[in-house]
Design a protein around this nucleic acid. Structure first.
Length: 572
RNA sequence: CGGAGCGUAGCGCAGCCUGGUAGCGCGCUUGGUUUGGGACCAAGAUGUCGGAGGUUCGAAUCCUCUCGCUCCGACCA
């Protein structure tokens, strides 16, 4: 491709509404343009990366035995009513009517449609197992789209659905997809973790999220430094081996803590470490119960663990009046001593003695508080957020490392939720009708490309890994008016094209500075600079975008060497 | 949906408080000089000031309504 004839509108300035680096760079590098909130056009340069991502997904899924199909964006309400999601899905489901006033929605996911297809076309166990996937534009009317392709309303997603006769088959399908996903992200050249995840509202008993590691990630994850265990922080289990409660050595003592409410303030005021304090949170559950939760002062509550423990939909921090009614004091002074509600304590508390707690009165705390002697706990449980350094629950020696991650893929064992609701059955070898066991598997295509940029950029621009880069090689013709430079560049360009290398020739009438800046911004992995100075010696200059490494190549060997480097980079 | 803010040239912004000529930088066009890290000189083009209504002799500016967008909180690939 010739730059002069291409559409690659780079921006010198960062668009004001782009928050994260991938969004900024995709805008600046002319990969995407916004059409409406959370809705983007894929410009030619960006589309090339998207297509590459899709192709990698296709190849790996096909290899895993999945079959590609394509379902419609417009879904009839009928199907969604049948599964019950027409009512449940809420405003995120974009609904509309056709000319006959029949209700439709834009598909935010396709369990209904696929289940409908399978129940109508598959009737025997002999046709199983079956795994169908599509790469399709989805629409979810997100409350708050942001971060460009990272969280759009309209986005390209690969979704796959597996159908099996029994649980065992579903497990096999699941692990095949898990492995295919590992291969996909590996091939993209991304640093990622497959983490155990909370399966959330979609249901099912087992799920893994695939997280690309990046500072800007919206999810916290931990992984063991010794074994394979990795989990979303929402889910990460904590263990306490041989936890013993130390003997109490201090008297319970009431102290004045004027104006000191937060743990930091109280700890600083009493000159103790926050880890020597216990905080008491008053929460209200979806079942309208008020519970008190005890955590070590420097820890965070994991409300998902708590909700799961209590068997409720949610447990939220109680409103000020509720706190006041429960503890007799304004927020900031709650403590377990004398509380009338159920008290759930994090297991870690069992290993503490002589700690500081709230006094349930304005400006009052207790020091030297101890379990049993001073107050009762209804239940000890793992309810805190895991952090780096916590011991691994699966192996003896490992410790957690903590990361930020961008969720780019998710694999779910769905079970029979949809097949049951929509009556998708086949006959088994006994001639008995069996409800299909399903799995579903998603990958955010655009999000993965954005995540790859989050992970591969510097202050000058992006540096996408070779497998996702829009072009593999950039030939920078420094001065198109110089006959030798022009001829050498054209020759190189032609040779690379003939070798099947994806090459962009910067033949624009621009000054070198502009060409270099644009080159760094758009981040094509390998750049050949053809300039008069080096050409006199018969050389061209190679710059590796990601490392910044530069070297001279004889003009005669350059194309061949580049072809080799591209091949090497694609292999990893 | 709740809270905060912004809509002025393709992009980034000033002007608004205190009403009277629509401006700056970048980009764009033309000519010339320049050509290894976002050049310089000269001449240009470009605006329903988001929209509607109101106040006023006069509105980008004040008032009302409306639409769109962005940011902070609960969802998700």
């Amino acid at each position: 491709m010739r730059y002069s004839q291409y559409l690659l509108p780079t921006l010198k300035e960062t668009p004001a509404d782009a928050e994260v680096i991938s969004h900024q760079l995709m805008m600046r590098a002319g990969m995407i343009r916004k059409v409406a909130a959370g809705v983007y056009s894929y410009m030619p340069f960006g589309l090339r990366s998207i297509r590459k991502m899709e192709q990698i997904i296709r190849e790996e899924l096909n290899r895993a035995g999945a079959i590609e199909c394509l379902m419609p964006m417009a879904n009839p309400a009928e199907l969604w009513q049948e599964s019950g999601r027409w009512e449940k899905y809420g405003k995120e489901l974009l609904r509309f009517k056709d000319r006959k006033s029949t209700d439709f929605c834009m598909g935010p996911t396709h369990e209904e449609v696929i289940t409908d297809i399978v129940r109508n076309t598959v009737s025997s166990y002999k046709q199983l197992p079956l795994n169908l996937y599509q790469i399709q534009t989805k629409f979810r009317d997100e409350i708050r789209p942001r971060f460009g392709l990272m969280r759009g309303r309209e986005f390209i997603m690969k979704d796959a659905y597996s159908f099996d006769l029994d649980d065992e088959g579903a497990d096999t399908a699941y692990s095949k997809m898990y492995q295919a996903y590992r291969n996909i992200f590996q091939r993209c050249g991304l640093k990622f973790r497959a983490v155990e995840a909370d399966s959330g509202a979609i249901g099912g008993n087992f799920s893994h999220e695939f997280m690309v590691l990046a500072e800007s990630g919206e999810d916290g994850i931990v992984s063991c430094d010794a074994c394979e265990y990795a989990a979303n922080i929402e889910k990460a289990e904590l263990v306490y081996r041989d936890i013993k409660t130390p003997a109490a050595t201090a008297e319970l003592q009431k102290v004045d803590t004027p104006q000191h409410k937060s743990i930091e303030e109280v700890a600083a005021f009493l000159k103790v470490d926050a880890s020597q304090t216990v905080k008491t949170l008053i929460l209200q559950t979806s079942e309208d119960e008020v519970v008190a939760v005890l955590l070590r002062g420097d820890r965070e509550l994991n409300d998902i663990k708590l909700a799961n423990l209590l068997g409720v939909d949610w447990a939220l921090m109680a409103e000020d009046e509720v706190v006041k009614k429960t503890t007799g004091a304004p927020t900031g002074f709650a403590g377990p001593i004398g509380l009338k509600v159920r008290v759930i304590a994090d297991t870690e508390i069992q290993g503490m003695a002589d700690f500081v707690v709230g006094g349930n009165a304005v400006d009052v705390h207790y020091t030297g508080a101890n379990l049993v002697r001073d107050f009762e706990v209804s239940q000890f449980a793992d309810i805190r957020q895991a952090v780096g350094g916590d011991p691994c629950p699966r192996c003896d020696c490992g410790k957690f490392e903590s990361w930020r991650g961008i969720e780019v893929g998710h694999v779910f064992k769905l079970g029979t939720k949809y097949s049951e609701a929509m009556d998708a059955t086949v006959l088994d070898d006994q001639g008995k009708a069996r409800t299909l066991v399903m799995g579903c598997y998603g990958i955010g295509v655009g999000r993965t490309v954005a995540a790859a940029i989050e992970q591969n950029h510097d202050e000058n621009g992006m540096a996408l890994p070779m497998p996702l880069a829009p072009f593999q090689v950039l030939v920078s013709m420094l001065n198109p008016k110089d006959d030798e430079v022009r001829e050498a560049s054209e020759a190189l360009y032609q040779q690379l094209l003939d070798m099947g290398v994806e090459v962009l020739l910067d033949d624009r009438q621009e000054r070198p500075g502009i060409k270099f800046k644009d080159a760094d911004l758009i981040g094509i992995p390998l750049r050949l600079t053809v300039g008069a100075r080096n050409l006199k010696e018969g050389n061209v200059e190679l710059k590796v975008r990601a490392s910044g490494e530069m070297s001279m190549l004889p003009l005669a060997d350059a194309a061949k060497e580049l072809q080799r480097l591209v091949a090497v980079a694609l292999e990893n």
